[in-house]
Design a protein around this nucleic acid. Structure first.
Length: 632
RNA sequence: GGAGCUGUGGUGUAGUCGGUUAACAUAUCGGCCUGUCAAGCCGAAGACCGCGGGUUCGAGUCCCGUCAGCUCCGCCA
């Protein structure tokens, strides 16, 4: 492919292109703008001596080689302009008939996304030809030589930013989608963030240790992805939902400070912020304590936001108990960028004659309200839609009232004495022109439904600053109605708060866990806990979760074993890297920051995964397929 | 498992109350063109309207089913 002539040119210019590694700082920023081409010792440039995006006035007069993809082409007949694109950016090439007839004919044949290498002089553009929109807009290359390294079919969509194309197509041709500069920027930003995490953790003596991808399935939690074993027919590995047990075992091993940037797998339905495989920044510590862990994490995310967005984050972060978060925001991951808190109306609603309210309260439930400022412009249709929305979320209904000077315009106003009505208005800080919404149900449903309504009706202008907080004091268990047993709220290795330990068997639901979530702008970006580090407490928890001694020994024997050999007090956290990156890039979906994501139906449109396999493969594993469900 | 939205030349869209040649932009192909950078001008080709069925004299349009993508609920320790 490469002509001898080109090799010659490369040799002649070699000296100028070798990079000096010696003075490179520890932090080479591949995610930053690219300047000079760096090569290993004895390296020779192939096809290019410079990056397109790095060309500027300082190169004027020198002859350089560039290589990349043909972007926009502007053919004026005797003069052709080509935007040449590589990882670093764009550079305008000028093909002039007078600089060679053959080459010019080749240039006329160039089409979008052809791969070319060019050589020529960098010249300053005439004053009125400068393109201020382009970093390289002061200069252009007068092409003296060109080689077409590869042709390209016409791409199925434009390789440009801000494109509006079916996600189907983007995912099927993800390799082209990633050619778009904005997607490249996402990959670069992710690289920088990951590197920053590694450097930061290293500075605090954390050791990055790898844990198995082929491990054993454990009960509880998400569905496992299973991997059949050939050597042990009928047995299966599971891909890790997280390295939870391994990192605890590493604490028993005496690692003391562990972290890992690690892929995790959960076979559950997808969302904009959930993929079947995703990446965690996994952290575990011994002899460290939650306070140090909070400080460590706050320092880490503050550094991320500082380095990437130059935003100073105030520390320490706000801490809020789970109960309070639910009561005030109707969510265990409250978005604190705006107020609009839920107001508890139990004390006032009880004085009304509205059965829906009073019977909810009689039944031990709650009545809460939400004030929508300026909500009077809402149409009846919209109110019906929100009522439907509330019903879908589990509420029996949605009560509403337009606040007016004379009282409420509402189907339920007749159940409230004028004084009571004013009291409610006062408590909700509702003024004429506002809309107030009420939900009456059990405590959890009431909070959750209003929490969703709060987000749906959130004001346009939210605070621009990132709002971090720790949500703490989660319950240790919740009751699983379907299975009629208690389930761990976090995971079964979470330590109860010591003062709640005596309630463990008496009143499990009131036991608080030493667990915490890190929340940013309404998104849970991490969660962790102090772990149980003695085998007796661990065994008590397993029993409460309905595991028999035999079961827990079979499934978790190695953990109980490890905890009985001098396990240090330990705890940790896992951060959702994809979510964090998506927040840094401002993307709604983590698909944008995952190079090769799955669709909502968990398939890969590019590779066609998942796919059927050869019968021979199944035979080897001694796996028979049952008749498939109808739809397949 | 459930709900909602979307699906029309390669791409992005329009298509009225069901009415017969499915429109526009852009990309593509051909021609012209020496300073463009969303280049311009002229011309050509390109769709059986996601798929299947139904209603109707007649369906891109209405109905049912289905597939795909997206969003949400359930689920996700």
């Amino acid at each position: 492919m490469e002509s001898g002539e080109q090799i010659e040119i490369a040799r002649n210019q070699l000296a100028a292109f070798l990079i000096e590694r010696a003075d490179q700082s520890e932090c080479h920023a591949a995610g930053e703008g690219l300047s000079e081409i760096k090569l290993p010792e004895r390296g020779k440039p192939v096809h290019k001596t410079h990056y397109c995006g790095a060309m500027n006035a300082s190169h004027v007069g020198s002859t350089v080689k560039l290589a990349g993809w043909v972007g926009k082409r502007r053919d004026h007949g005797g003069l052709i302009f080509i935007d040449l694109r590589d990882r670093s950016g764009l550079m305008q090439l000028v093909f002039d008939q007078q600089l060679g007839v053959k080459m010019f004919r080749d240039a006329e044949s160039l089409r979008s996304e052809y791969v070319i290498a060019v050589e020529g002089e960098v010249v300053r553009r005439a004053e009125d030809n400068i393109n201020p929109a382009l970093p390289t807009g002061d200069v252009e290359m007068r092409v003296a030589r060109m080689e077409i390294l590869n042709k390209s079919k016409t791409p199925p969509f434009y390789i440009e930013d801000d494109l509006n194309v079916d996600e189907n197509l983007r995912l099927r041709y993800r390799f082209l989608d990633l050619r778009r500069p904005e997607m490249l920027e996402r990959l670069k930003l992710r690289h920088r963030a990951v590197k920053l995490v590694r450097d930061y953790m290293d500075r605090f003596d954390f050791l990055e240790v790898e844990t198995p991808m082929l491990t054993r399935s454990t009960p509880e939690g998400a569905r496992d992805f299973l991997v059949p074993s050939r050597l042990h027919q009928g047995s299966f590995y599971a891909l890790p939902q997280s390295p939870q047990l391994f990192k605890q075992l590493l604490m028993v091993s005496g690692i003391e400070r562990y972290f890992q940037i690690v892929r995790c797998f959960r076979d559950e339905d997808l969302r904009a912020d959930r993929q079947p495989e995703f990446t965690q920044v996994d952290i575990e510590t011994s002899f460290f304590g939650p306070e140090n862990l909070f400080a460590l994490l706050e320092g880490l995310v503050a550094k991320l936001w500082k380095e990437i967005h130059n935003i100073e984050i105030k520390k320490p972060f706000l801490r809020m108990p789970y109960k309070e978060a639910m009561n005030r925001y109707g969510s265990d991951k409250p978005d604190m960028r705006f107020g609009m808190e839920l107001i508890d109306l139990g004390d006032l609603a009880v004085k009304s004659s509205f059965k829906v309210f009073t019977s909810a309260l009689d039944g031990g439930g709650a009545v809460k309200g939400l004030c929508v400022k300026g909500g009077k412009k809402m149409s009846r249709k919209e109110l019906d839609d929100y009522t439907l929305f509330a019903r879908r979320l589990g509420a029996k209904g949605l009560a509403w009232a337009f606040v007016e000077d004379s009282g409420w315009r509402s189907p339920i106003s007749k159940f409230f004495e004028p004084d009571l009505l004013q009291e409610i208005n006062r408590k909700m800080k509702a003024a004429p022109g506002d809309l107030v919404l009420f939900v009456a149900d059990n405590w959890e449903t009431t909070c959750q439904v209003l929490g969703h309504l709060r987000l749906a009706l959130a004001p346009e202008e939210k605070s621009a600053d990132p709002h971090f907080l720790w949500v703490v004091d989660f319950p240790l268990f919740h009751y699983n109605e379907n299975e009629e047993r208690y389930d761990s709220d976090h995971h079964p290795f979470t330590a109860p708060r010591l003062e709640d330990l005596q309630l463990l068997e008496k009143d499990p639901l009131s036991v608080r866990a030493q667990a915490y979530d890190l929340v940013l702008n309404g998104v849970e970006i991490g969660g962790g806990s102090t772990r149980i580090h003695d085998s007796e407490t661990q065994a008590r928890i397993f029993k409460l979760l309905g595991l028999t001694d035999e079961e827990s020994r079979e499934k978790f024997g190695f953990l109980l074993d490890a905890l009985s050999f001098g396990a240090p007090p330990h705890g940790g956290i896992a951060l959702g890297l994809d979510r964090m990156i998506a927040l840094l890039t401002g993307d709604e979906s983590i698909r944008q920051v995952i190079p090769f994501p799955k669709t909502a139906a968990a398939s890969c449109l590019m590779t066609g995964a998942p796919a059927s396999v050869d019968l021979a493969q199944l035979d080897e594993l001694k796996i028979d397929l049952q008749p498939l469900d109808e739809k397949s």
